[in-house]
Amino acid sequence: NLYFQGLKYMVPGARVTRGLDWKWRDQDGSPQGEGTVTGELHNGWIDVTWDAGGSNSYRMGAEGKFDLKLAP
């Protein structure tokens, strides 16, 4: 699974964008943008601060869902 392989790169400072299971509307800005991981992966959740200004926790394994992917 590509998403599980990418988890080791989901570290503080990593750049991310919305992924396969995104369901959080425009939390990442409008139009959709990139963000920066600000915390360690914990119980399948990870913290992100978006360039647009907001921050929140997103699923990276929790509930079998992956809200994020590494930015290109």
Score class of each variant (00 low, 15 high):
R25C: 15
M10P: 04
R18L: 09
G64E: 06
D47F: 13
D47N: 13
W22E: 04
T36L: 07
L20N: 13
G39T: 11
P12H: 09
K23T: 09
Y9C: 15
P72S: 14
N1Q: 12
D67N: 01
S57N: 09
Q5S: 13
T36E: 06
E34M: 14
V11G: 08
V11H: 09
G64L: 07
P12A: 11
D28L: 04
D28C: 06
R15K: 08
W45P: 00
L41M: 11
V11C: 14
H42P: 02
G29M: 04
L70P: 09
H42L: 12
W50L: 02
V37Q: 02
L70Y: 09
F4A: 13
L20S: 12
G53W: 03
V48E: 00
Q32A: 15
Y3T: 12
G29H: 05
G19E: 03
T49R: 11
K69E: 12
W22H: 04
L41W: 11
G61Q: 02
E40I: 13
G13N: 05
G35I: 02
P12Y: 11
G33S: 12
G44Q: 02
R18S: 03
W50D: 00
G61I: 02
R25W: 14
D21E: 03
L20I: 13
G19R: 06
G39M: 05
N56L: 04
L70R: 07
P12E: 11
L41Q: 07
N43P: 02
Q5R: 10
L41N: 07
S30V: 15
K69Y: 13
G19L: 06
M60C: 09
F66W: 11
F66H: 05
M10Y: 14
L70C: 11
A71E: 08
R59H: 02
D47H: 15
E40H: 13
A71T: 09
V11A: 09
Q27N: 06
D47R: 15
N1T: 13
D47Q: 14
L70V: 09
Y9P: 07
F66Q: 04
W50P: 00
S30Y: 12
K69N: 10
V16T: 00
G13S: 05
S30I: 14
Y58E: 02
N56D: 08
L7I: 12
W45A: 01
G19Q: 05
V37N: 03
V16K: 00
D21P: 03
S57G: 06
D28F: 04
G64P: 00
G29N: 05
T38G: 06
M10W: 13
H42V: 13
G39W: 03
P72A: 13
D47W: 14
T49M: 11
H42T: 13
E63R: 07
V48N: 00
T49I: 12
W22G: 03
F66E: 02
R18P: 07
T17I: 15
S57A: 12
F4V: 11
A14N: 05
T38V: 13
G44T: 01
D47I: 14
Y3H: 14
F66V: 06
D67S: 04
L7K: 08
G19V: 06
R59D: 00
Y58A: 02
K8L: 12
D28P: 06
F66C: 10
T17Q: 13
G64K: 06
F66K: 04
M10I: 09
A52S: 12
T36C: 09
R15W: 03
G39D: 07
M60Y: 10
D26K: 06
A14C: 13
K65E: 04
N43H: 12
G64T: 05
D21S: 06
G33Q: 08
S55A: 11
D28T: 05
G6S: 14
T36R: 07
D28W: 04
L7E: 09
Q5T: 12
L2W: 10
M60L: 06
K69W: 11
Y9N: 09
G54R: 08
I46F: 01
F4G: 11
K23G: 07
L20M: 14
K65V: 04
N56M: 06
W22T: 03
E40T: 13
P72L: 11
T17C: 15
D67L: 01
W22M: 05
L2T: 14
L2S: 14
N56E: 07
L41A: 08
L2F: 11
G33A: 08
L70N: 04
S55N: 11
F4T: 12
W22P: 03
G53F: 03
G39V: 04
H42K: 12
G53D: 01
S57T: 12
G6F: 15
Q32E: 10
A62I: 06
W22D: 03
L68E: 01
K69I: 10
N56S: 10
Y58V: 04
V11P: 06
K65I: 03
A62N: 06
E40Y: 14
K23D: 11
G19N: 07
W50V: 00
D28S: 05
W45S: 00
K65R: 09
G29K: 04
G61L: 01
D47G: 11
A52M: 10
H42Q: 11
D28A: 06
G61F: 04
A14G: 04
G39S: 14
L2G: 15
E34C: 15
Y58C: 05
L70M: 10
V48S: 02
N56F: 13
V48D: 00
V11Y: 09
N43I: 06
S57K: 15
G29T: 06
E34L: 15
M10R: 06
R59Y: 03
G6I: 15
T17V: 15
R25P: 09
R59W: 02
G44V: 04
F66L: 06
P72V: 14
H42I: 13
L20V: 14
Y3K: 13
T17D: 03
M10L: 13
K65S: 09
P31L: 07
T36S: 07
V48F: 01
V16I: 05
A71S: 11
L7S: 09
D51T: 01
R59S: 04
G6M: 15
T38L: 09
L2A: 13
W45M: 06
D51W: 02
V48K: 00
Y3E: 15
L2I: 14
W22S: 04
D21R: 05
R15A: 01
V48H: 00
Q5K: 13
N43D: 12
G29D: 06
M60D: 00
K69L: 12
A52I: 06
E63K: 09
W24P: 06
T17W: 06
D67E: 08
S30M: 12
T17G: 07
A52P: 01
V11E: 09
G29P: 05
R18N: 02
G54C: 13
G35L: 01
G54Q: 11
T38Q: 08
D28V: 04
K69R: 12
R25A: 15
E63V: 05
K8E: 15
N56I: 04
Q32R: 13
G64Q: 07
V16Y: 02
G53N: 03
G6W: 15
F66Y: 13
K65M: 09
R25M: 15
Y58P: 01
G13L: 04
A14Y: 04
N56H: 14
E40L: 14
L7N: 08
W50G: 00
E40V: 13
H42E: 10
T36F: 06
G33R: 08
D26R: 06
G53I: 01
A52K: 09
N1G: 13
A62F: 13
G29V: 05
Y58I: 01
G13A: 03
D51H: 03
G33E: 06
G44L: 03
M10D: 01
G53Y: 03
I46K: 00
W50N: 00
E63S: 08
A52E: 08
E63L: 08
D26G: 06
Y9H: 12
T17F: 06
D67V: 03
T38S: 11
E34T: 12
A62G: 06
K65D: 01
